[in-house]
Computed example of a mutant assay.
Amino acid sequence: MSTQAEAQTPVFDIVKQVFSVFLVVAGVFAFYFFSEVSVLYRVIGLLVVALVVLGLMLTTDLGRNIWAFFLESRLEVRKVVWPTREETTRTTMLVFAMVFTVGLILWLLDMALFKGVQLLTGQGG
């Protein structure tokens, strides 16, 4: 009996997902169809449809897996050791200095190549 329940679950999930897509399309259609109604009411209706679809999708295996992924991601973000203000400032200044240095080197190389091409082609006296 558990084998039949496992076999029927994915089909029911697919039906829920297709119905969710239908609800989203119907909600967007209704948003534009009822253009004479206040925008506030249409946006509220669209948000209600979105919440219903979200709730419906969270009852599927895919929705539960995505929700578990988001919860695990939050836990991983909490484990991150964020740099201090001093470290961030020092790193930013180092990046600015390196960008300026590389820019200066490239400018000098460009000027040298430009002068070399002028000499080779006899332009610019």
Rank of each mutant, 00 (worst) to 15 (best):
G116A: 15
V39I: 10
A30K: 04
F19V: 02
N65L: 13
F12K: 05
L56I: 05
M1S: 14
Q17V: 02
V77P: 00
L113V: 04
V117F: 09
V48C: 14
A26T: 01
S35K: 09
R74I: 07
V52M: 13
V99I: 13
V102W: 00
V28I: 14
F69L: 10
V15T: 02
L40G: 07
M111I: 05
L94R: 03
V49C: 14
L106E: 07
T84D: 11
N65F: 05
P83K: 11
T60W: 02
A5T: 01
V18F: 07
L120K: 10
T84N: 13
L119Q: 12
A112F: 08
D61M: 03
I105W: 01
F12M: 11
L46Y: 04
T91K: 13
I14N: 06
Q17F: 02
V43S: 14
R78K: 14
S38W: 04
M93K: 06
L56R: 00
G63H: 01
V117H: 08
L71N: 12
L71S: 09
D13V: 01
V25M: 08
F96K: 08
F12D: 08
K115A: 15
F29S: 08
Y32A: 14
P10W: 03
G103W: 02
F69K: 06
T60P: 07
V53Q: 09
V21S: 10
A30H: 01
V11R: 06
K115H: 13
R74N: 13
F19A: 10
T3E: 08
V99S: 13
L56H: 00
V18H: 01
G55T: 03
V11N: 02
D13C: 03
W82M: 15
V24G: 01
L106T: 06
V43D: 10
T59V: 05
T89P: 01
L62W: 03
L106I: 07
L94M: 12
L104R: 04
A26Q: 08
L51Q: 04
G103N: 09
P10C: 14
V37Q: 10
V37K: 06
F12A: 13
